[in-house]
């Protein structure tokens, strides 16, 4: 009887794993199968046109804009916040409050971020539906990611580095930027790359804050469409699965490259001993 149960459970384990892998392969496979015919130079680098499948260059540019703006704000703030939490703060109420807030931010669904962005950045601050409104919303979304990964990275810096540097009569600030931050750099970089993935994959929050204009943005104050929103809209509005899948391929390739970069950086920088 016990043997039978063991066999049954073992069978379930194999079956589940097979199912998971099969489903995921089917999804990715389907997207590549459906979309690859559309991928060519003109599709990627061409301007959008409502007739046919149109180019997606404006969406790529918009996506790059959102990545660039949100990271340029979130990265320094996130790193310094993590430095405060790990290196400066005395453990106590304030730190607990900050940690609690950071954790809570991670748990908020992106549609709520979208609501907030739509009323705060779009309406109250009068940015309108725009790349900047979306980017600022995304900044708040990725801030906890950067804070957490940087904190983890700072935790791995041996205490002896700090003591060694301070004992040589350096200031805390000198120790921070000469010894601690360089040692934590691989971890921090992986965090930033993780954030890029999050930004690229985000849709609901951007949908409500950047709008859906399918054209090359004039600047950061114009409304525009990111790749994910484009993929969503062509599916919803015209049922153009082929186009949505082609955009999907671009997205998956971007995620692949980012993942590869993250692994490469952490491996490379950890192996080299300085």
């Amino acid at each position: 009887m016990r043997k039978f149960k063991d066999h049954l459970l073992r069978g379930c384990l194999w079956a589940s794993a097979f199912l998971t892998v099969a489903v995921l392969i089917i999804i990715v496979g389907y997207i590549f199968y459906k979309g690859f015919r559309l991928i060519d130079f003109n599709f990627i680098f061409g301007d959008y046109s409502p007739v046919g499948h149109g180019g997606i260059w404006p969406m790529i540019v918009t996506t790059l804009y959102t990545i660039f703006i949100s990271l340029i704000i979130a990265t320094p703030i996130g790193i310094l916040a993590a430095v405060y939490l790990q290196e400066y703060a005395k453990q106590g109420r304030l730190v607990r409050l900050i940690r609690y807030a950071t954790e809570s931010l991670t748990g908020i669904p992106s549609i709520i971020y979208g609501l907030f962005g739509a009323v705060f950045f779009v309406t109250t601050l009068k940015f309108g539906m725009s790349i900047i409104a979306a980017s600022l919303t995304l900044t708040i979304i990725v801030l906890p990611v950067i804070i957490r990964t940087t904190e983890e990275a700072l935790k791995t810096v041996p205490q002896s580095y700090r003591e060694g540097s301070l004992a040589l009569g350096t200031t805390k600030l000198q120790t921070l930027y000469k010894v601690i931050l360089p040692s934590a750099m691989p971890g921090i970089l992986s965090g930033i790359i993780l954030s890029i993935g999050r930004i690229v994959g985000e849709s609901a929050a951007i949908f409500l804050t950047a709008g859906t204009v399918a054209a090359m943005p004039d600047g950061i104050f114009s409304s525009a469409r990111t790749l994910t929103v484009h993929s969503f809209l062509v599916t919803q509005e015209s049922g153009d699965i082929e186009l949505a899948a082609a955009v999907g391929i671009v997205l998956i390739v971007i995620i692949l490259i980012l993942n590869f970069l993250a692994t490469f950086i952490s491996k490379r920088l950890n192996k080299a001993d300085y």
């Binding site: 998971t20 892998v21 995921l24 999804i27 990715v28 389907y30 997207i31 993935g197 690229v200 994959g201 985000e202 849709s203 994910t228 929103v229 993929s231 969503f232 599916t235 699965i241 949505a244 899948a245 999907g248 997205l251 998956i252 995620i255 692949l256 980012l258 993942n259």
Partner: peptide
């Protein structure tokens, strides 16, 4: 599988 956790959720909807 880890990689698939990072795929934009919209694509799951498209599928």
């Amino acid at each position: 599988v880890q990689l698939l956790a990072g795929i934009p959720s919209v694509l799951y909807g498209v599928f």
